[in-house]
């Protein structure tokens, strides 16, 4: 479903002072598009994602999905994959995947069947009866993706989903999830501070600047999806990477000495 972000600004009041997190964001996403929001920490990219999913109302402006303005969370419209997985530790994996369906009043039989399908898609079919504490971080994140996909959402919102994982895990996870998402023709918004992740995944990379968060630039990645891992080793990739690196550097305030990757690890 088409999504447009119209003049969105967000201001917080924190400890008496006003912080401008986002300023005049205008963007539109078409159906099936994969967009990466890239920027230094504090650029408000996660705040924007929170607004897109209706967990927060912008101070100014509006977000429109299809014909309706986003005011409240609706997982069928836009489902979240959170950075810290946030699985419910007292529920087994199958019930975690089906939790949104349960909230939506879907019957037990249908719920379990759908959850099992998704676990198979994620290569976790034999883990249905386990609890989240028994799974590795990468597996838990795949469960969190399955939980979001179970709602069959028009839009998938991912907030640094691989941030907590090691390099090897995020690569292999990236490849498998990428395939699933392309098959599902999902519209995806991915928040990340990793250049590689943004280029490997997205059709379009939006570069944001810090405080107040604004859209600085955008770059189209024309390589068809799903992309093989070898894409990372190709010349195009390297070029895009250096292009984005410079943009990101500028987004951080023109300091030629600063390494744009460094402070974002916080």
């Amino acid at each position: 479903m088409r999504m447009s972000i119209n003049d969105v600004s967000v201001t917080f009041t924190r400890a008496g002072s006003t912080v401008e997190a986002l300023k005049d964001i205008n963007l539109s996403l078409h159906e099936g598009e994969f967009v990466a929001l890239l920027g230094p920490s504090g650029c408000g990219k996660s705040t924007l994602l929170t607004c897109l999913g209706g967990l927060m109302t912008p101070t100014k402006g509006e977000i429109v999905v299809g014909d309706s303005v986003v005011e409240n969370p609706d997982p069928r419209r836009a489902a979240f994959v959170f950075q810290d997985y946030s699985l419910l530790p007292w529920k087994n994996i199958l019930d975690n995947v089906g939790v949104g369906l349960r909230f939506a009043g879907v019957g037990k039989q249908e719920r379990r069947q759908r959850s099992q399908e998704l676990l198979e898609m994620m290569g976790l079919s034999q883990w249905g009866e386990s609890h989240p504490g028994q799974l590795s971080g990468g597996m838990q994140q795949r469960v969190a993706v399955a939980r979001a996909l179970a709602m069959d959402p028009s839009i998938l919102l991912m907030d640094e989903p691989f941030g907590a994982l090691d390099e090897q895990t995020r690569r292999s996870l990236g490849e498998s999830i990428s395939t699933v998402l392309t098959q599902n023709k999902q519209t995806v918004v991915l928040v990340t501070h990793s250049l590689d992740e943004a280029i490997y995944w997205a059709d379009r990379v939006i570069v944001m600047s810090a405080r107040p968060g604004r859209v600085m630039a955008e770059v189209q990645i024309r390589q068809p999806r799903p992309r093989p891992l070898e894409f990372i080793a190709q010349e195009d990739f390297a070029q895009l990477r250096s292009q984005l690196f410079l943009m990101l550097n500028e987004a951080m305030g023109h300091d030629q000495q600063a390494n744009p990757l460094e402070p974002q690890r916080a």
């Binding site: 999913g53 967990l55 409240n72 969370p73 609706d74 997982p75 489902a79 979240f80 959170f82 810290d84 946030s86 419910l88 007292w90 529920k91 939790v99 949104g100 349960r102 909230f103 939506a104 939980r147 709602m151």
Partner: peptide, 27 residues
């Protein structure tokens, strides 16, 4: 908070939030 956020994001009603998140956490 992160579990409460899941309940909100996945549109749990008030009663569902209590049953699925608050009570098990507080058990």
């Amino acid at each position: 908070d992160r579990h409460m956020k899941v309940a909100r994001a996945f549109k749990a009603s008030w009663a569902q939030t209590i049953l699925a998140v608050v009570l098990p956490s507080a058990l």
